[in-house]
Design a protein around this nucleic acid. Structure first.
Lengths: 114, 114
DNA sequence: AAAAAATGCAACCAGGGGGTTGCATCAATC
DNA sequence: GATTGATGCAACCCCCTGGTTGCATTTTTT
């Protein structure tokens, strides 16, 4: 049994695609737009970037695959919405790694003072 | 003048490579190893993964470029060390984005109740 | 019913990323 | 000083990613 906070290889395999999705300036920009302006369509979004609408569509697909956005068809247009849940996941990974480091530092300190 | 917490395009350009460096399972594994076991050499690290030493070297270079690890030559070997500072940066980005979303939700709520 | 608007789909292209192998170099040890 | 161990460097390969263009499809709107 491993602690629920442990950083198992399985967790890493889940975390990697999530961070990879965040690892692009255009995609981060899309998230910021969706955060600040609320749900938007592709054409509205692509107006704010200097790449084609299809490029933005691909980026949104990547974000959706990572669970960072969702979309719903409404008539002839598709509305894209920011999904804060997965962001919380990413935050958790970082916190766990950081905690792991602190624990290691504690061990080192105890060893040196011994 | 923009608030220091604002998510400017410049900040995004800085954040993207950082998240990109985190967006690979092997690299995350390396960070975990360096956290848990303390500073290590490439050969020691590559023993824990099923890819070549050179592949690990490339990954470490990427992590170093992102500021997530540092290295120092000691005699004939090079010691790689986890760098927690940049991890804190990544955490900050996520926190800002999350906060941006909360603010937007607050605006929406106020609008609906108006 | 025709025109316009929004999206979907497919093909294509250039570049970078992750991986490998082979060899050179530098330091430590016997 | 010769050997062994750790690393550095370079070339190469495959495939995925980010981007493009062109056209088809679906829903409004006039």
């Amino acid at each position: 049994m491993s602690r629920p906070e442990a950083l198992s290889p399985a967790r890493l395999k889940d975390a990697a695609p999530l961070f990879a999705a965040l690892g692009d300036a255009t995609r981060l920009g899309l998230l910021v737009s969706l955060c600040a302006s609320g749900p938007l369509t592709v054409t509205r979004l692509s107006g704010q970037f200097d790449v084609s609408r299809q490029a933005i569509t691909k980026h949104l697909d990547v974000l959706a695959e990572a669970g960072l956005v969702t979309s719903a068809r409404q008539g002839r247009e598709r509305i894209w919405t920011f999904e804060p849940k997965r962001l919380e996941d990413a935050h958790q990974y970082l916190a766990r790694l950081s905690r792991e480091w602190d624990v290691a530092l504690g061990r080192l300190k105890a060893f040196v003072e011994d």
